[in-house]
Design a protein around this nucleic acid. Sequence first.
DNA 1: CGAGACGTTGAACATAATCAATGAGAGTGG
DNA 2: CCACTCTCATTGATTATGTTCAACGTCTCG
Lengths: 229, 229
Amino acid sequence: MNSPVLKPPETFFHSKLFRGLGNEELAELTAICQRKRLSAGDKLIEQHSAAQNVYVVVSGTLMIERLSRSGRRQVIAFSYSGDYIGFTNTEEYEYSVVALRETELQVFPRRDFLTLVDRFSTLKTNARQIGGNVLAQTLDQLFALGQKKAHERLCFLLAQISRRQCGTQNADIELIMSRQDIADYLGLTIETVSRAFARLKTMQLIEIVSAHRIRVLDRSVLEELASVN
Amino acid sequence: MNSPVLKPPETFFHSKLFRGLGNEELAELTAICQRKRLSAGDKLIEQHSAAQNVYVVVSGTLMIERLSRSGRRQVIAFSYSGDYIGFTNTEEYEYSVVALRETELQVFPRRDFLTLVDRFSTLKTNARQIGGNVLAQTLDQLFALGQKKAHERLCFLLAQISRRQCGTQNADIELIMSRQDIADYLGLTIETVSRAFARLKTMQLIEIVSAHRIRVLDRSVLEELASVN
DNA sequence: CGAGACGTTGAACATAATCAATGAGAGTGG
DNA sequence: CCACTCTCATTGATTATGTTCAACGTCTCG
């Protein structure tokens, strides 16, 4: 089963999804896995298209968004390395997915992937856990939008990205997305987002190195304001 | 397998979860199923407690809510007959669940239930579909909180309840929950909710029969304002 | 009938949206 | 290399929306 065409196993450990899997299982996954590269701005998934693939982010950043007929947009999530996308239970994607920069993905045909999830108990457990995390994350965002003020919502986003990028950098947060993306994620306007940044700066919580690079000065207060609790 | 202790099968068809199951499968489900009755105000699930059971609502109404240390509250959903609760993938409930009136439930030990979901492909398919619906519903709410004005959010709730109660009544909507519950569901205050009702009345979309009974006068406009699209 | 909880309405205030102008940075072509 | 332009971000002024505080209604249940 450890055929020479087996891709380097470390690529499979990017995602929690593949944690603890045996070699045979990884081999089967490898067999149905393809690679995909996207450039900034490329669309991975079109809203309302048939859900055919499951993707795992190897590197890069993507944005998951929902558009309405009336032109309003809700950004649902930003996806980083290790995240998986399109593991939907519905037959249609209910959102679009766009790359925010150079992004590398693993592609699994959804049907085959679901079959393997059924067969491999470890994979099943992992999938369930991650599925639970997705819902939990969405509920956190729901809480933020329903109960928090503008600057608290921004803390929510910053803390979230910071957690994802932990280890990547020192204490700096790289904001690959535009102010409009942030605004549509937090249910605000770009002007309000801008003022929220200014406010956090005045509060000495952050330093605005550049528009897309933020240095966290007081993590505990940031987390406090971000907290759902 | 059609033993005499088998409970009336129609009780199992309340939920979409049990659609299309064979008699043997229903018998196994019956074997692990218990009943529970709640009165208005009774708590079914305490936030952060261990996720031990899966519940299916037979009759009544429940409210799913999340509380923060700081006392803020986000109502996540209202659950009606046929809904299921606690089919979480995490080991801990991340929300509390309270009965809003006399409610009857089916109780399944979560571990046993998950085992049966694995074994019965029909049940698995149904569970996946319903799981997808839960996420879809949460995303709709996210969109409403992020992008909609107060009176549109109220339309969102009214349309949703109306759809759930379709067939139960003529065109009247019964609002079993309090104004505070509605406010915490929509991310507003009770005063704003009250004014939103007044506004929809002025717009001739609804008639306020009583505080807890709303008659829909123009369904199409209501749906339009409620729409995520 | 009275008490208490819940809901509505009004007035003042706060927050965020909108409209408008300015500023900063990246890419282009002279 | 330096203007020039274009896009994106920030800041200010004004307006709109929703919150807060307060008073008043209404309904239910003794």
